[in-house]
Every structure is written in structure tokens, then in C-alpha cells.
Amino acid sequence: MSMIVDEQLATNFYFDKNFNSQAVKLLPGEYYVTDKDIMLVTVLGSCVAACIRDCYSGIGGMNHFMLPDGGGDAGSPLNASARYGTYAMEILINQLLKLGARRSNLEAKVFGGGNVLDGLTVANVGQRNADFVLRFLQTEKIRIVAQDLVDIFPRKVYFFPKNSRVMVKKLRNVRNTTISLRESDYRQRLHRVDSGGDVELFS
């Protein structure tokens, strides 16, 4: 079976009057990389976002993802959840390298993983996402220069790759269900990801 949920390039561009900046808004399952002086924005519940940049060139990007549930032995390095998370991170890093970033120059700021979704069957979804992203970056030897993870509030993250600045607003009074509905929808789509990508033999 083919992969049902691919990580998608974010396409929601706008001009942010408050920051007087071109901006790209990322939804769950999306990523964006740039060498331009623009702002990347996302709102996180239990999902995590890695903001990764080349600390010399300023080429940077962000993703927004969560791990799907289990998929076999949760403790195994091969469980479907870890393989999907690794894939989501690799997509972002590969796109940065394609733009000219150097792997050895990469540094990361990571956010999200709040335990904010109601009605989840798996406990501590946010914690699990946060643990994964920290472990992945440690394995890849990508320096973590800032983090704001777990807790119980959604966050709005503004990332300026060119100068590394990040602003995080904790959303203590969320009046609608948009964040949890978007994440629940994404999570449902991830439920159907139980296999790898396409395979083709040429000979």
C-alpha cells in the first residue's frame, strides 16, 4: 500500500501587517524552507515544530508534525511511529540541504508537544512528540539552541530563519476548537499510514 499522508510543502502565503513581513503559515503535516527574509508561522497543540537553520547562511525551515500511534512494538527503533517521525524530519533537512544549507551548520529550536487534545486514546501524545524530536536531533547531532515543549497550552510560533529569532505566544484562552479539530483531522489521516512508500524494481 502506498503512503497516504505525505509531508506537504506549505502554500499559505500572506503579508503579516503586525510584523510587516511576508509570511508563510504552516498547517499540520506541512513544512517550508527558505533562504529569504520571511516569517514562518504555525499554531501547535500536541504537534511539534522543528525550526532548523544553517547558522552561517540563514537558510532555514520549519515543519509541523505529530507521530502516528504505535504501529507495532512501541519500544522498537523500527516501530511505524518512529519511522514516520524520522521521515518528517528528513524531508525538512533534505530540503534545507537542497537550498544550500550545510548539515554541519544546522541548529534547531523546537516547540510544541502540549497535552492539549481531548479524547485521545493514547496518553501523553504531546510528550511523546516532544521526546521524539529531542531524541532525533540528538542522534543527528543537530544542536538544540532553544526549546519550549510540553505543558498544557497551545502555542503560536513565529520563526524568522534569516536571523534565527523565534517568538512564542502561549494561547491560554482559546475560544474555538480550530486547533484541536485540525490536529484531530491530521491524526486521523496519520492513522491510515501503516506502510512505507512506493517500491519499484527496474530489472
Binding site: M3, L78, R83, Y84, T86, Y87, E90, S195, G196, G197, D198, V199, E200, L201, F202, S203
Partner: peptide, 22 residues
């Protein structure tokens, strides 16, 4: 000259099947 192409995320079982085939 590639023998085959596997798109990530990889599925361990399918990877082993393909390797077994070749």
C-alpha cells in the same frame, strides 16, 4: 544503473523482501 527505487518512510518487511529478491 539503479536496480530498484524505494521511497521513504521505509517498511522493514518490504525492504527485506526486495533485498531478498535481488
Amino acid at each position: 544503473g539503479a536496480t530498484g527505487w524505494l521511497v521513504k518512510p521505509f517498511d522493514p518487511k518490504r525492504l527485506l523482501e526486495v533485498i531478498g529478491k535481488v
